Computed example of a mutant assay.
Amino acid sequence: MRALTVRPGQKNSLEERQLPDPSPVDGELLVRGLTVGVCGTDHEIASGEYGWAPPGRDWIILGHESLGRVEQAPPGGGFSAGDLVAGVVRRPDPVPCGACAHGEFDMCRNGRYTERGIKEIDGYGAQLWCVEPDYAVKLQPHLEHVGVLMEPTSVVAKAWEQVERVGGRAWFEPRRDLVTGAGPIGLLAALLGTQRGLDVHVLDRVSDGPKPPLVRDLGAIYHSEDVAQVISKVCPDVIIEATGASGLVFAALTGTASYGVVCLTGVSPAGRRITVDAGSINRDIVLENDAVVGSVNANLRHYHQAADALAKADLPWLERLITRRVPLERAIEAFQRQPDDVKVVIDL
């Protein structure tokens, strides 16, 4: 089989290489890889900034946003040859911590978890891969061309679950939602917001290209003006921050209506400094009973929520999210950003 590999910590080490076909063990599924998505984490790994190879070697098969078709499945495991599946990224730590022991491995407390294509386990960027049935999620057949969106949708499903759980500490009936950032996470967050019947607004810095019509075709409202103007106009009950841009993060902290919830999903780069009025931020959050929560990764429950959300979504809209498809033999092109990129995927 062919696979996309990288040496974590070594810049420009992306390589398509020939590897032996994997053999399923202990009831694993054998899956024919169809597509793998490329996200910011993959860019960081490819740039040598992040990632851990499996023990005993210096390279890892890249790719955690997966889509494949089952080739072999053990009897009685709930899967059959031909099923469309996505593989879960994270595995619980071996100790395990309390969260991992209860199936909430996305909330691992000791950091000993592993992750496909990121941390110590080969990823899904290969023409064949194996996965345990407990870490595979079935998709409806009509999602064959867009099912690679499962992993980012699972991240968004978790974020919305966190918002609703935090809001549920008292009476909570949000009506207006602001999403900052119209990348894949932001657009999928907007999708799940509209599926909840909310008045959804999306803020991004571009004013043309594919993003504004994608937002409008959800029935949401697109904004490209200053964040303070948008927050003042919208007065959102919920903000899902999906950029990691420091200015937007701090604007979001005090940008909700009273008893609002801010969910931070974007990861900020270190080293950038801005001046903030910390006292004013604290005062607003306390006096308005606001809440701020960080959210990353997803567990099996969130993958099932994502599968349901994608199944309900408008298929042509989902197809428009994937703005560029690159064949495996030219995979390096998927890591060369282009102005109108929303979601870039590699066809395996």
Score class of each variant (00 low, 15 high):
residue 47 S to D: 15
residue 28 E to Q: 14
residue 83 D to C: 02
residue 51 G to Q: 06
residue 70 V to C: 00
residue 85 V to E: 01
residue 24 P to T: 11
residue 64 H to C: 06
residue 51 G to V: 10
residue 80 S to H: 13
residue 51 G to S: 08
residue 34 L to H: 02
residue 39 C to T: 13
residue 21 D to E: 12
residue 62 L to H: 06
residue 65 E to K: 05
residue 69 R to E: 04
residue 67 L to G: 00
residue 77 G to A: 14
residue 85 V to G: 03
residue 22 P to A: 06
residue 69 R to K: 11
residue 58 D to T: 02
residue 58 D to P: 01
residue 28 E to K: 11
residue 77 G to T: 14
residue 55 P to N: 09
residue 50 Y to I: 10
residue 30 L to Y: 00
residue 67 L to P: 01
residue 71 E to K: 01
residue 83 D to K: 02
residue 62 L to M: 12
residue 68 G to W: 00
residue 17 R to Y: 11
residue 78 G to V: 08
residue 40 G to N: 09
residue 70 V to K: 00
residue 20 P to N: 03
residue 20 P to Q: 03
residue 89 V to G: 05
residue 24 P to I: 11
residue 41 T to R: 08
residue 25 V to R: 15
residue 80 S to F: 11
residue 74 P to Y: 03
residue 28 E to G: 10
residue 60 I to C: 10
residue 63 G to N: 05
residue 58 D to V: 01
residue 84 L to W: 00
residue 44 E to K: 14
residue 50 Y to S: 14
residue 23 S to L: 15
residue 66 S to N: 04
residue 54 P to R: 09
residue 82 G to I: 07
residue 81 A to G: 12
residue 74 P to D: 02
residue 88 V to L: 12
residue 51 G to I: 10
residue 28 E to M: 10
residue 22 P to R: 05
residue 73 A to P: 06
residue 72 Q to F: 05
residue 72 Q to T: 10
residue 46 A to P: 09
residue 47 S to T: 12
residue 46 A to R: 10
residue 55 P to Q: 09
residue 82 G to A: 09
residue 43 H to V: 15
residue 48 G to M: 06
residue 82 G to F: 06
residue 47 S to G: 14
residue 81 A to C: 09
residue 64 H to K: 08
residue 53 A to C: 03
residue 64 H to F: 09
residue 33 G to E: 00
residue 88 V to G: 04
residue 60 I to H: 08
residue 50 Y to D: 13
residue 89 V to W: 04
residue 43 H to W: 13
residue 47 S to Y: 12
residue 61 I to C: 05
residue 18 Q to E: 15
residue 45 I to L: 08
residue 52 W to L: 15
residue 24 P to L: 11
residue 88 V to N: 06
residue 25 V to W: 15
residue 43 H to I: 15
residue 46 A to I: 10
residue 41 T to P: 11
residue 50 Y to R: 13
residue 28 E to H: 12
residue 33 G to L: 00
residue 72 Q to R: 10
residue 51 G to L: 09
residue 83 D to W: 02
residue 84 L to E: 00
residue 34 L to W: 00
residue 37 G to K: 04
residue 72 Q to I: 10
residue 24 P to C: 12
residue 35 T to M: 07
residue 61 I to H: 03
residue 49 E to R: 15
residue 34 L to D: 00
residue 77 G to S: 14
residue 36 V to T: 04
residue 60 I to S: 08
residue 49 E to Q: 15
residue 26 D to L: 14
residue 59 W to A: 11
residue 75 P to R: 04
residue 44 E to D: 13
residue 28 E to V: 07
residue 56 G to T: 04
residue 59 W to I: 07
residue 21 D to G: 06
residue 33 G to C: 02
residue 26 D to F: 15
residue 56 G to I: 03
residue 79 F to K: 03
residue 63 G to R: 03
residue 43 H to T: 14
residue 83 D to A: 05
residue 78 G to L: 07
residue 59 W to N: 07
residue 73 A to S: 06
residue 85 V to D: 01
residue 69 R to G: 00
residue 37 G to V: 06
residue 26 D to R: 14
residue 38 V to Q: 07
